[in-house]
Design a protein around this nucleic acid. Sequence first.
DNA 1: ATGAAAGCGCTAACAT
DNA 2: ATGTTAGCGCTTTCAT
Lengths: 338, 338
Amino acid sequence: MKKKLSINDIAKSLNVSKTTISFILNGKAQEMRIGEELVDRVLKYVNEVGFKPNSIAQSLRTGKSNTIGLMVEDISNPFFAKIARLIEDRAYQNGYKIIYCSTNNDTKKTKDLITMFRERHVDGYIIAPPEGIEEDIESLLKDNLPVVFFDRHLPKVITDYVEINNRFSTYNATSHLIGEGKKNIAFITFTSPQTQMQDRLKGYKNAMKESGLEPLVKEIVFNQNEDLIIKPITDFLTKHPDLDAVLFGTDHIGSCGLKVIKEMGIQIPSQLAIISFDDYDVFKLHSPPVTAIAQPIEKIAESVINVLLNKLNTPLLNQQPQFITLSTSLNIRGSSKS
Amino acid sequence: MKKKLSINDIAKSLNVSKTTISFILNGKAQEMRIGEELVDRVLKYVNEVGFKPNSIAQSLRTGKSNTIGLMVEDISNPFFAKIARLIEDRAYQNGYKIIYCSTNNDTKKTKDLITMFRERHVDGYIIAPPEGIEEDIESLLKDNLPVVFFDRHLPKVITDYVEINNRFSTYNATSHLIGEGKKNIAFITFTSPQTQMQDRLKGYKNAMKESGLEPLVKEIVFNQNEDLIIKPITDFLTKHPDLDAVLFGTDHIGSCGLKVIKEMGIQIPSQLAIISFDDYDVFKLHSPPVTAIAQPIEKIAESVINVLLNKLNTPLLNQQPQFITLSTSLNIRGSSKS
DNA sequence: ATGAAAGCGCTAACAT
DNA sequence: ATGTTAGCGCTTTCAT
């Protein structure tokens, strides 16, 4: 087994000081006026023996870890999985690694995870924040650690975020249903104080009120166990046979809703028109295909990582935080036509 | 801004040697026969001021990073996303962090990523390996770094792996179609030398041959761009109007196949019976619901992390590698009945 | 232009 | 039972 090389080994083999090696490796040869010939010789040798500086030692010395902490709600949710994938790609391209984790929307778990990330000295944080972690974030910001929120933000915390226009999205979707002649339109969503969910709720209510219709909201407690989502939806639909349309607040609720509707034998769209937030294969392939609010996933990921890299690269400039709001598109399909 | 505390600060404040602190913090107080009263005092103070040892320094010193490298094919694929989620949970429970990345089945990218993981001194590797990285893995193993494969393995590399019984799964699914009276059964899959895909192919062929039927295989080049999967499927189905059943090799091909079938207006199952590998909402909710081969995702994740933690905890015992093969279930639904 | 040396924070062998 | 000290591998200041 070959021993791992250190910068000292290189220095000895080449009869050069390790300082010089370090400078050359870090591109400071010019600055330090190191002979071009030496630079070549070192680079050639380093390459030959495949020496890589020990990044842990580098981290200890410089205080940078070249790591970004990514906290999503649930990595197995397609929305977050896709975002994570795109962020990962761009981060690696820029020499950053990603450490990720799922918060499960659990405040305590999230606090623990922030502590762990902190111990690991991650250079920057990308977070889809659950409620109740304001202090922890403030503490990060106080120590000059860059934090970018996405999907939602914490109203009391001033830091960069990337979101979509939730309020308009549900307003628009609801209006579409109203335009199709629907009157008894329910909104089924998760119970959540988070900004994105609150905004979706507001958009729905606004559209209903503007048209003089009575809002009917069913809130479901967030749970990993699908049965605990399906049950309340079933109860709700059973209790309100007079509904002519339903707007689902998230993709997860949407697909659970479809299961219930299938189970109950309700016809879409003749008996019930349907729209879901988020747009995935399950909606596109459904019969009839389901009208859905599509988030611009690539743009979200792109914006998030750009904002963070930007902050990482210019740490001294205490720039104004950026608040980015992106647009969704309403993909109208068979499930919402009358 | 409060300065980060170090073990030295603690030692000074308490008028105790930092060795003692270190021993106490690492649970070696008993072993070192340190006074119980002192232990309490130290623990209390450490807790009070919120001191956490710098894990980077720990890593540098001990050579352990408490990090597991997880390399999946594509984190935005639900199969891998769910596995990742479960592995993440168990890893965090055991004090390990996960650094993950998507290989995209790209040999070169994977080699680079292994190098990166290595530089980061990850303690163990969980990999869904693409072909062509045999040497890199051998090199890891030579240096005593634990590697666990899942979803597939590399025949030339002897290390632990967790898989499903692919051959039987497709054999069984094909047999089911044959039992339903189908004769012209095609298998649409990705072109891949990987063991899981080869085994799926073999299972299909075996079933066909045993029944004296002619296998018809359409191989599609793996691509991120969905259009490049849909196009060849469309061409294939157009060219073979006499087919009465199709078995799809993966969930991704399966959902693309459904799109094609929908587009072409083919009736399931009257004109064409369908079975897909992997079982997700998109298949369950389809009309008619799609017969699917379900992988035991929880068991896979559980086995993988158990095998790895086991190796991590008993590094000296150069145990026999474990080869775990789990069973799938064939969930028969409307799409495959005659 | 190059080298010596300090030190990032921690662990553990060794000394007492 | 507790303290002293030598590094882990690297960067960077300061001296030459």
